[in-house]
Each structure stands twice: as C-alpha cells, then as structure tokens.
Amino acid sequence: MTQTPVIEVDGVTKAFGDNQVLKGVDLTLTEHNAVALIGASGSGKSTLLRCIDLLVEIDDGDVLLDGEVITDPSCNLVEARRRLGFVFQAFNLFPHLTVRENVVLGPIHAHGRPRAQADEEAHELLKRFGLDKRADAYPDTLSGGQQQRVALVRALASRPRALLLDEITSSLDPELVGEVLELVVELKAEGMTMMIATHEMSFAREVADEVCFLSEGRIAERGDPEQVLGDPQQPETQKFLRRLLEAGRL
C-alpha cells in the first residue's frame, strides 16, 4: 500500500523572542491517517499546528501541503489555508453569527460557493452532527459540547484536505468530552486525514495511527500508539507518562 503524504513538516523552528519553542520538528501525515501530538503543557503542540496552518510564521524549515512548500514566501497563504481545516481549543465561533451562518461563511466567502449550495451542505452536515435544530441559534446559547461540534462542522464545511485539531476537548466539562470525541472517531473511520493535539491518551490510542511525543522543541519519540503509550523507549516519554499516570489521567 503506497501512502500519499498530505502534510510534511521538515525541520521547522519557531521562537517567540528568547523562547525557542520548536527546535526542528520533522513530521509526515499521510492520507487517511491520524497523527496524535502529545506532550506537556507548553511543549509547543498548539504552536506547531498554527505553524502548519500558517497562522504563525515559522523561522526556518518547510511545511509542505500535497508536495507544495506552503511556507515559501511566494506561496499564497490564504489559498493554502483554504485547503486545511482548524478547530481551536476555545471553539472560537463567531458570536454575532448564527450556527448556520458560522458554517457557511467559509464556503461562501473563501470558496465562492453559491449560497444555496452552501446552505444545503451546511444543513446536511449539521443534521449528521445532531445540530440541525440549533441552526438558527447563536453560539452563546449552546452548550460547550454543541459549540465544539459546530466548530468541527464549520471546519468540515470547506471540505478540507486535512483537519488540524488543537486540544478540542480541553475546555469542555468532562461529561461533554465524549460527544465530541465520538465524532472525531467517526470522521477517522470515513478516511479523514487529521493531526490531533490532545491530552486524552485513551483517545489518542483509539484514533491515532501514530503518536508523536513533543518535548524540548523536538519530536522525542514517535510510533504506534500501543508502543509509545504502553512501552515508551525514551526517558522523557517515560517521565511524561508516569506523571500522567500519577495524576490519574492515563
């Protein structure tokens, strides 16, 4: 089976002032696969995802999307972002727009789809995610779990080549985590290509084809979820997992 690379991260470095967050990250995400990014708080998981979506400018290295170097200064970054979907930890829905308007904003204005078609597709997606009854509601009136599902639908509505999920359950109440993670598992089963920063190790185990442990600005260890999470080879990984275990989060 040949695997087509969708996102390739090649020696990416990024510093904020004196804070060298990424010191050379290499990573490949192939089609229909899911990579889980794990690591301590502040290890740079969000920064890496933002660099890939060109929301943060990298210092050195390359990011490739379908073989094209999108971090090249001559590359149209808006056009590259249109091919990726991003879901934020804090949902970041647009509070002045209804659920439906949130969902169709990208398709209509970034992709130039006719409104009727965008509405139709938004309706289908919302229905699938159990949100069609709330289509005319404003985000403030939804539960956290519903808001995050809307954010997922909004990212999917542009039919992205890959989804970047940044700790999408971290700001949810524990009882709402399940309803969001279920959907991600479903998307994975349908062949969605995803890069997932997460603190939920059981979720990483369930959905990811590969787990990458980010530490000291590099990928310290990577491999099959069972191997990395069950039998880590690197001392940093062992330490990180031991701490999670002690905190009762493994």
């Binding site: 808006v78 972002r81 249109r82 970041n92 647009f94 509070p95 990208g106 970034a110 542009s158």
Partner: peptide, 25 residues
Amino acid sequence: PSQKASALSLGLTNTQSLRLVILPQ
C-alpha cells in the same frame, strides 16, 4: 485576536475577516 485567527483559518483574506468578523462585532 482568536477571532481573527479563526477567520483566517477558514481561508478568508485579511480584508474579509475584518469586514465579516471583526467589524460587525
């Protein structure tokens, strides 16, 4: 600023995110 990041991540241009997301709010 997360509102702008969110707008840009959808593939909107700077001008569009100002007009459609930032200014109305």
